[in-house]
Amino acid sequence: MRRADMAIHLTKESKVLVQGMTGGEGMKHTRRMLAAGTDVVGGVNPRKAGRSVAFDERAVPVFGSVAEGMDATGADVTVVFVPPAFAKAAVTEAADAGIGLAVVITEGIPVHDSVAFLAHARPRGTRVIGPNCPGLITPGQSNAGIIPADIAKPGRIGLVSKSGTLTYQLMYELRDTGFSTCVGIGGDPVVGTTHIDCLAAFQDDPDTDLIVLIGEIGGDAEERAAAYIRDHVTKPVVGYIAGFTAPEGRTMGHAGAIVSGSSGTARAKQEALEAAGVRVGHTPTETAQQVLAVLNDGR
Rank of each mutant, 00 (worst) to 15 (best):
A268R: 09
I105H: 01
E13G: 06
H195N: 00
H112I: 11
S65Q: 04
Q141L: 03
V294Y: 07
L295C: 10
D207C: 05
G50I: 09
I8W: 03
R224S: 08
A90M: 09
T283N: 02
T38A: 13
T38I: 11
E248L: 13
R2G: 03
A72R: 15
N132Q: 07
T208W: 05
I217D: 01
V294E: 15
I105R: 01
I185R: 14
R51P: 00
S14R: 06
D176R: 13
K15R: 15
T208I: 02
A275G: 12
E93P: 00
E222A: 04
V104N: 10
L10E: 03
G219I: 12
I109L: 03
A121Y: 09
E271G: 02
Y228P: 06
R299T: 15
A288Y: 01
V40M: 13
A152L: 04
E222V: 05
Q203G: 07
D39G: 00
G186I: 05
Y228A: 05
E57C: 07
G37T: 11
P148V: 13
V160Q: 05
T194E: 05
G135W: 02
A85I: 03
V66W: 07
C133R: 07
G261I: 10
D5S: 15
G108H: 08
G264A: 09
A246F: 10
R175L: 00
L101F: 08
A246R: 03
I229N: 00
A7V: 05
A221W: 00
I157D: 07
G155A: 11
Q19V: 14
G249D: 08
K15G: 03
